[in-house]
Amino acid sequence: MDTKENRAEVPAIKDADSERPIPTAWRNVIKSIVNSFVRHDYHLAASIPLVAPVQSETAEQIENYIKDYGVELIELPEETWNSSVCIWMGNRWDALIDLWSRSEGRSDLTLSLHVSETKNGFEFNIYMVYVP
């Protein structure tokens, strides 16, 4: 459903005291990361601008965790922005993105990202996928 609330711009706010919604400017990059995982491309072979290369150890952890969890990931629906959050850590944001599966809808799996502000915009570092 496309509501006025979904179209509102969500800025990146440096608030270390509380979790905030995922900024609008980050959402397409995050969708691209998750779409790579949906295609089982955990190393991001098809590189995504502003996303740091994924270390082999991190890619293996993500692949194994998703396989062990036992679901098929799907692309992020707009609904994910209602529950995914970020918080300012003093020099970067930590972001937690709820992942979705074909069988469960919103799953217990979470993508953890570190997001930094650079002169070119935002840089995304994939930290891990896990069940919090």
Rank of each mutant, 00 (worst) to 15 (best):
A46G: 09
R106N: 03
N6A: 13
N28P: 00
H40V: 01
D2R: 13
Y69D: 02
P21M: 01
Q61F: 11
K4C: 06
W26F: 08
R7N: 11
E78C: 08
S101L: 02
E9V: 09
V38L: 11
F122M: 12
L44T: 01
F124I: 13
P23S: 02
S112E: 06
E117N: 07
S101A: 05
R7H: 09
Y65M: 12
P21H: 06
V71M: 04
Y42S: 09
G121K: 01
H40D: 13
D98N: 10
V29Y: 04
L111E: 06
K4H: 09
S36M: 04
T24S: 15
K14D: 00
L109F: 01
E5I: 08
E9Q: 09
E5F: 11
I87H: 06
V115F: 15
V51K: 03
I33D: 01
N35D: 15
T24R: 00
K31C: 04
G70T: 01
S112V: 15
E72S: 06
P23W: 09
T24C: 05
E9G: 00
I33Y: 00
L96V: 12
H114M: 07
D98A: 12
S101Q: 05
A95I: 00
V38F: 07
G70C: 03
D68I: 00
S107E: 00
I48D: 14
V10R: 12
N64L: 08
K119G: 12
V131P: 00
P21S: 09
V54A: 05
D41W: 03
W81I: 02
W100Q: 01
W81E: 03
V54Q: 03
I66P: 04
T58W: 09
W88S: 08
V115M: 14
T58C: 10
A52R: 07
I74D: 00
E60C: 09
Q55S: 04
P53M: 15
E57L: 03
L109Q: 05
S32I: 02
F124T: 03
S101G: 03
E72M: 01
F37D: 10
P53W: 07
I48K: 09
R39Y: 04
V51H: 07
V51A: 11
E104C: 02
E9Y: 15
E123S: 14
A25M: 03
K4S: 13
K4T: 10
M1L: 10
